[in-house]
Design a protein around this nucleic acid. Structure first.
Lengths: 351, 351
DNA sequence: CTGAAAGCGCTTACAG
DNA sequence: CTGAAAGCGCTTACAG
């Protein structure tokens, strides 16, 4: 005891007189040995506090019993975003059901390739469009399945996705129907939710396209006639910052349309602090429908994304691949329903 | 390629003519071989898309390069609690820095023992007092370190803890100073944040003690003279439920004191929905100071717990043990500062 | 029902 | 600078 080494299968074999094979069977396949042997072994194991080493077991079995979640950005911004956390919860609840652990893989800009190479997982769920081709290659080399959430269908990776363009079109339309003509679009940096940005199809790009399409129908265009766009980090803090600049500039827009609720929550927080009434002075809409959206005053008009469901579907798909490798080649694409949620933060434009 | 097996160290050895030893050195200890050998090997490795198998590497090294976080409750309630998520973020940010992954271990009531046995981690961070002795035993057998957040100092496990009793005393005192005499205490179930409840010292118990002490000073006592206590799950939903019962009963209390912000947020949400003014009709205070506390109207009076810091400290302590096994025996106890946050949700009792 | 042996893919003390 | 060999602690096809 104490500092010595932990008990191994060999110790139990020695002590019981059975072979390592039998010990192993006692734990994994009791029907292969006699009842008597099994009982003796189990007893001795209990007595000696033996249980199979997970690492060795994994090596033999070629299984880690864990699925990975590759963070789309650094920890600070991802784990601060209620939307992502909700997705994580969905994944984790399926893992719980399957008795798997969930391995969070923080992604450094420089080293996420390394992280993906070494992560002790049976499969990886990524988030965001436009996954680095090199990362995809590693998955293939490691022969582990991969599922993308909010992925880009064209990358040939099974994915669970919201129709971002259409949803953005819809919510912008709501804003325009209220008569708004001077609009500040709070965009996300182009590589937000991109494990590694290279192509041009990312979530922010799609959402922007949706906005543009709706604007067009009203003869409006970004960067012209009072429609401006700025980029923000996907954080509460950046939302506050944007709002305070907005205030300094004397509220040059009648509506703010943002690509992420957490940013909007920051904006609303700051506006309220400065006693700028919403939607009287300015209307605000978001995207995601996180819990905070219905807590804040006024409650937020936004696009509901079923984050929990997304996580669950992704994990379920992953387990399908894990449990039935034959399915693997099938490239699935699972769309998930969004919903426009109209609440008080959107009002009529004040002509 | 394709369906065949992945490239191993032996393939590279065969192709380059060097031994497996040299291949390994090229990756882990280049100074042990000639520059020329190293280059040749690296090139061939790149050409053949070789990288060391993480599992095999772990087995040899006896390291997983991952630390575990044992969820104190099922996924649904833990990953829904912003306080716990903030702790998780703290842990994860340290893992990111150390290039480790973070393995979330969902805990089923029946099988968390099993989960702890098999989790592929180098150390485990738990949350909550009163950790099951059997679980502690497994850590010892696995020879992996353990750090408890909100742990019970008497259990002889290094822990990061808020002075729950004192903090609860302080906040209750604030409520009493405002003249409240009819108070509803929304307690957490006794085993909340307990991996496995057995002893009597759990977070809810300590908080209750703090409340009682403050009440005593005002000659008040739980279950007497208008002070009642009810238990809730640590969820937003249960908060809503409590509030709606409270409303049905015609607001028999002038103040609600709850042990968890997320519950309070549910309560406030429901009160607002029913147009019960806070703090005019009833005052409300919480515990944790999650972000939602300052978003909701009215903003919440509560106890600030530095959740992020807790997670960071716990992880840092863990890495200290991992990097310097000699420190291991030292039983550290790191207290973390709380702070009473006074906001609008607490008002004077209406005499 | 039971066991000897090969294998999982690495790392590393040791010898040369 | 280099390599043969043992070892990490399991699992399992195969033979008896």
């Amino acid at each position: 005891m104490g500092k010595n080494k932990k008990t191994t299968i060999r110790d139990i074999a020695r002590e019981t007189g059975y072979s390592k094979t039998s010990i192993s069977f006692a734990f994994n396949n009791p029907s292969r040995i006699s009842k008597e042997a099994c009982i003796k072994i189990k007893n001795k194991a209990k007595e000696m506090n033996y249980f199979p080493d997970p690492l060795a077991r994994s090596l033999s079995l070629h299984k880690h019993f864990s699925i990975g979640f590759l963070l789309p950005q650094n920890v600070e911004s991802t784990l601060n975003n209620p939307y992502i956390l909700k997705v994580l919860e969905g994944i984790c609840s399926i893992c719980q059901k399957k008795h798997f652990t969930l391995t969070i893989i923080p992604s450094h800009k420089q080293s996420n390739i390394e992280a993906v190479k070494t992560a002790p997982v049976d499969g990886i769920i990524t988030m965001g469009m436009d996954i680095n081709e090199e990362i995809i290659k590693i998955f293939k080399l490691r022969k582990i399945p991969m599922v993308a959430i909010d992925g880009n269908p064209s990358q040939n990776i099974p994915c669970i996705t919201t129709e971002d363009e259409k949803a953005s079109y819809d919510i912008m339309k709501e804003v325009l129907k209220k008569g708004h003509k001077r609009i500040l679009i709070v965009s996300l940096k182009k590589d937000t939710f991109s494990v590694y940005s290279k192509s041009n199809v990312t979530v922010p790009v799609l959402r922007r396209r949706g906005y543009e399409k709706a604007l067009e129908e009203f003869n409006l265009k970004i960067d012209e006639s009072g429609i401006k766009t700025i980029e923000s980090d996907c954080t509460f803090e950046d939302g506050k910052l944007i709002a305070s600049n907005f205030i300094k500039e004397n509220l040059p827009y009648s509506a703010i349309v943002a690509m992420s609720d957490i940013v909007v929550i920051g904006i609303l927080y700051e506006l309220r602090k400065k006693n700028i009434e919403v939607p009287k002075k300015v209307s605000v809409v978001g995207f995601d429908n996180i819990r905070e959206s219905m807590l804040i005053s006024p409650r937020l008009t936004t696009v509901d994304q079923p984050a929990l469901t997304k996580g669950e579907r992704a994990a379920e798909l992953m387990f399908e691949y894990l449990e039935n490798p034959l399915v693997k080649e099938e490239k699935k694409f699972i769309p998930v329903q969004y919903k426009i949620i109209i609440r008080e933060s959107l009002g009529n434009a004040d002509f």
